[in-house]
Design a protein around this nucleic acid. Structure first.
Lengths: 199, 199, 199, 199
DNA sequence: TATGAATGAGCCTTCATTCAT
DNA sequence: AATGAATGAAGGCTCATTCAT
């Protein structure tokens, strides 16, 4: 039942955010007594943080796991990285949306996450950075900071899900068109980045 | 007092969103009786929509007002456009955040906005599109759809404000560093786009 | 405008009763500022009492105006009386309904009405009473108190409008059937009373 | 406490109707927190309907349970029926008043009741109808439709409670006089009906 | 582990009313 | 005669939370 509650709560928080979701509805959807939510998680905030932390770390690790296929060219690696990020976000856009919206809410949670994050520059990131420098030195890639590159990549990928509802209003699309558009932007982003990195 | 309420409500909605802001607090901050909120705006939703619509249109028009300085080169025009957008967003990042989060909430409002939007491809957009095509034909810019270009520009600009709280957690910054970082990303985005458009 | 308010208020009170009607809606329907209601009538209760008193007295006088056609037989007079009462009630059943429901509400109003009522046994009532006694003595009508006769008559007539909504639920009727039913009950009541008065 | 609330609510609804009764006052009288009312019944309307339905059906069944004493004459049966109805109404006149006033309010409730009602012409009603026909054929009762007879009976009985407050204003009575009057009208109604049914 | 009872705080909203203009 | 501004009271309802069982 604890797991049922967790997954039900996750869905509800993704649907309606922290304010919009109520323990009452969580319990109703889980088919149990309302107080059980508090029995397991003590407070709504607690329940939320549990879920938020999990989701955040999953996403963050997904972002930080740079393709480890060693026999690829740098270009292919970068392509793979962009596409992986894009797919990660597209899979359930509500997750990055929730993170973005509620991140600031519980300073304590932020503190907790901070410690988990800063301690992990990760081996792969270091490797990727080194490769980037090599390419720059070789002259196959224009000079650019890894950090800036990553921010640009993530920006291009993630911004779409924020703008999607508005884009749909301006350019109404049916489901098929929407899927096509999302696929198009995926390759467009790859292209845009690669073109920008030309020396 | 109606104006006071409007501006107080605007601030509160920006701070806490629709759910988080209460008419009670709006009234308290405006220093008046709570019912006055309803006297002027009848419902919270009404008040919200009024504010939202104004903010949305201001931002949208800001986005759509492509620099009209005719004697600039295309590159300068694009630069100016990117920087203008960036500044527009940075001025109060909570506005695009609010729009993104609450856009879906009131279908009626969306409908209203839809009609205002679709009717406005605007002269300047057309002019800009034409210039882009000319540059492509001249060979000074690689082939790209205007729509894709704009989405990429907006993505690069807007994503930063969504990611900022998280970035600040990963790389703690004081106010000065933050300002510097924001300024840096401004020029970085311009650079990133211009580099990508090279033929 | 005062008259407009009065008639609008009358309709609304008839529709929704004292509690259900609001000065706000009265003003809205009358197309004027809400405070005007209070400007003219000071309080909602005041407005209500004004209307109630008028309606009550009109109805009461309608009930008390026994047919004055002198050249009719007693039977015809009674028939005419019953039918007149029935029509009076049927014309706008909401009036007796309102009176019944709200009569107890404002003791002061009751007091006022009391004084107006008790002072009016009325000439015609006396005449009718005398005629009844004559008929009883003649042996053409069975012995009965006038008061009881009147209560029975009024009961038969008035109860229908109270029961109508429930009857319509038990025996669904369209508009035509309803009218026919009401007409049928009219003659049925006359018949029922006359039959009961046989010596 | 749920039962306490139910009975307190019942009293309050009878006293003040749906609009006039507030959950706050119900709770206060029951000596509990106001939210408890909503905890048990979710909405005021819900609570009201629960009570209304019960009261309505009790009354309706009371009305429909025609005396089943087989060894009585038709006259005695009818007398018994009239007196039973009269007593049923007099016991708590506020019940039929409430039903009359609020019956129309909640269409859903009406629908529910409808289904319960129409399916119940009831054995006894059929038996009574048959007996009436037999009496008519025998010539001991004048021709009359059962439906009309019943409506007249109910009218005579029920109208009194609607008119009582007004009658009391016209003819002030103390408690004893009032009781006497009510008893008098009971036998008067029996008499009035029986006299009317003479062949 | 699970539940029913109960509560205080708060929310949005409507209402009748008053006051100054 | 008429209006806009403002208010206190109250209403129905939801919520997160606690407690006893």
């Amino acid at each position: 039942m604890e797991d049922t509650l967790l997954s039900v709560a996750e869905q509800l928080f993704l649907e309606k955010g922290f304010d919009g979701a109520s323990t009452t509805e969580i319990a109703k959807r889980a088919g149990c007594n309302q107080t059980l939510v508090h029995y397991y998680f003590r407070t709504k905030q607690n329940l939320f943080c549990t879920i938020f932390e999990k989701k955040f770390l999953t996403l963050y690790q997904g972002f930080m796991s740079f393709g480890n296929m060693d026999n690829l060219t740098f270009t292919d690696k970068l392509t793979y990285l962009i596409e992986t990020h894009y797919d990660l976000i597209s899979k359930d856009p509500r997750i990055p949306l929730l993170i973005t919206n509620e991140f600031h809410r519980f300073p304590l949670l932020v503190e907790t996450l901070k410690q988990r994050l800063t301690s992990k520059p990760t081996e792969m990131a270091v490797a990727f950075e080194r490769e980037l420098q090599e390419e720059i030195i070789k002259g196959t890639v224009r000079p650019i900071e890894l950090k800036d590159l990553l921010i640009s990549v993530v920006s291009l990928n993630i911004a779409l899900i924020f703008m999607m509802p508005i884009l749909e209003t301006i350019y109404p699309m049916d489901e098929i068109q929407k899927k096509a558009f999302i696929a198009h932007r995926r390759s467009e982003n790859v292209d845009f980045v690669l073109k920008s990195l030309r020396p």
